[in-house]
Every structure is written in structure tokens, then in C-alpha cells.
Simulated scan of single mutants.
Amino acid sequence: MLGSGLSNQIGASVAALAFGSIGPAGVVAIRQWVAAGVLVAVGRPRLRAFTAAQWRPVLGLAVAFAVMNLSLYSAIDRVGLGLAVTLEFLGPLTVALAGSRRRLDLGCALAAAAAVVVLTRPRPSTDYAGIALGLLAAVCWGSYILLNRTVGRRLPGLQGSAAAALVSGALYLPVGIVTLTQDRPQPTVLLCALTAGLLSSAVPFLADLLALRHVSAQLFGVFMSVNPVCAAVVGLVVLDQHLDPASWLAIVVIMAANTVALSTRPRARPSADPSAGPGPGAGGPGPGPGPERQTAA
């Protein structure tokens, strides 16, 4: 689980190294192609057998996946890895708290809201567009989780997620073609983008599948709460992105709110749905269908 989280965030930091040459959209295009290749090879979707009722949530999932990664990487480019991933993490936290009537969950929501105010407090250097992009990524991640549940009910195994990744990759074909033909990036830039795709998609996906054979989905979801801290640390070490003490405290509060909300939730009955696996990953959900992480970041 730790390897999965670190791989995801290191992949995002490597992606940031290529932003100057091909921009976030170019990097996301290559990442989407890597994710599509991995999931199609594993899920082997039978596209011709899909019904209209199955295609609708799959297409919604593809759009959510595509917009989520683009908005997250654009936010990373503007406000840094730690802040962008923390804002995106509000998506699954909101889904976890939505509809709950427990006072404890209300307290978690209020604590997270206060932490967001601290993170986004107005300053001369505040990049409001970057913050908005991070919050858009959060909305997309929440939508991704809800759509994944529908896809998991209507399609067996990983077929729905694989089809969504394939459609998402196809959506980025024009962007990738224009980027590769007009900008003509150096091989090192392409290597960074490809490495980001592997570290943020393929490696976390396989690591999550292995981890979920040994731990419960609830424990997995709780452990994934460490992703914002991993992102902040990786951003500091790899990209030299510094956060002030108040921002570090706010990140820890949001992480703690998610941990408390998930760890105190009544255990659900084990699901026989084979799609209840890992998800996209923050920091850019990687590709995958799980209800806890729904983490392709």
C-alpha cells in the first residue's frame, strides 16, 4: 500500500518535469494511453456486447477520468503537488461523509472544511485558478467513485473500467497528436511522460490488486489517507516545493478526517462483485474500479 501511494505521487512529480515542454495536457494524454493499455490488457472488455444501459455510465466514467487527470495535473503545475493532491482528496472524503447523520462525521466534515480555508486563505501569491482546478479534480474524483459503483453493478470484472480507460485515451488522441507533431518534444521529455504513466497507473494498479489480497477494503481506504502527506513530501524532495507550517497542519487535519470517517464506519458485508478492487489513486487517480480508493489521480 505504501509502495502504491509513493509510486503514484512520484509519478506525478516526474510528470511535472515534463510540463514545461508539452504542458499538463500532453503529459495527461500519454498517461491516459498507458492506463488504457494496462486496463484493456487486464480487463479485456467485450465492447460489442455492451448494451446502451452499460455504455452510459462507462462514457460518464471516461469523461470523469479524463477531466480529473487534466485538472489535477494543471493544478499541480500552478499550486504544487502537495496542495493539488490534498484538494483533490476532498472528493472521496465528501463521498464518504455524504448522507451520514453521525455527529462524528459532521465533526470530520467541519474539520476538513476549516483545513481547506487554511489551505486556500487569500494571500498575495494565491493562485485562485490553481485552487479551482484542484477542487474540480475533487468533484471529478467524487463522480468517478459514484460512476464506478454503477459500472461495477452493470458489467463484470474490469470490463467497465477498461472500456472507460480506452474511451478516455481516445479522447486525448487529438491532444497527443498535436503535442507530438507541433512541439516535437525531446526524448527525455517523452520518457518523463511515459514514466509518469507507468508509475501513476500501471504500478499502483498492480500493487493495489496485490495489497487487497491481504487487507480489507476498509483498511485499504484508511491507509490511502496518507496520500496527501506523501504528495507533500515528494513535492518537497523531488520538486523543491515548500509548504508553510499552517498548510502542513491543514493537510494532516484533512488526512485525519478521512481516517476517522472510514475507520469508524460500520463494516459492510463482503461483496462478491469482482470489480471491488483498487481505484484510481490520487495524485491522479490511476485506472481501477475500487469503492475505497477509486484511485486511477
Rank of each mutant, 00 (worst) to 15 (best):
M1C: 11
M1A: 13
S4Q: 14
I10M: 09
I10W: 01
A12R: 08
V14R: 00
A15D: 07
A15G: 10
A15I: 04
A18E: 06
G20Q: 13
S21H: 12
G23Y: 05
A25C: 08
I30A: 04
Q32A: 10
Q32Y: 04
V40Y: 00
V40F: 02
V42G: 07
A49V: 11
F50S: 01
T51W: 00
A52L: 13
L59S: 06
A62P: 02
A64H: 05
A64T: 07
L72P: 01
Y73S: 14
T86F: 02
E88V: 12
P92V: 03
T94H: 00
A98F: 12
A98R: 13
L104I: 15
L104M: 14
D105M: 08
C108L: 06
A109E: 04
L110I: 11
A111N: 00
A111G: 03
V116M: 06
R123H: 10
R123K: 11
D127P: 07
D127W: 03
D127R: 04
G130P: 05
G130W: 02
I131S: 09
L135Q: 00
L136R: 02
L136C: 08
S143R: 06
Y144E: 10
L146W: 04
L146D: 01
L147C: 00
R149D: 14
T150Q: 11
G152T: 08
Q159P: 03
A162N: 01
A163R: 00
A165Q: 07
L166I: 01
Y172V: 07
Y172L: 12
L173C: 08
G176P: 06
T179M: 10
T179E: 05
T181V: 12
P187E: 03
T188I: 14
T188L: 14
A196W: 01
S200D: 06
S201A: 14
S201C: 15
A202L: 09
A202D: 03
A207H: 05
S216C: 10
Q218A: 15
Q218S: 15
L219W: 12
L219E: 11
L219K: 14
F220E: 08
V222P: 05
G235S: 06
V237L: 13
L249S: 13
V253G: 04
M255K: 09
M255G: 12
S263K: 12
R265A: 13
P266E: 09
R267T: 15
R267V: 15
P270S: 09
S271L: 12
P285L: 15
G286M: 14
G286K: 04
P289M: 12
P289D: 05
P289K: 07
P291I: 09
Q294V: 15
Q294A: 15
A297M: 13
A297K: 11
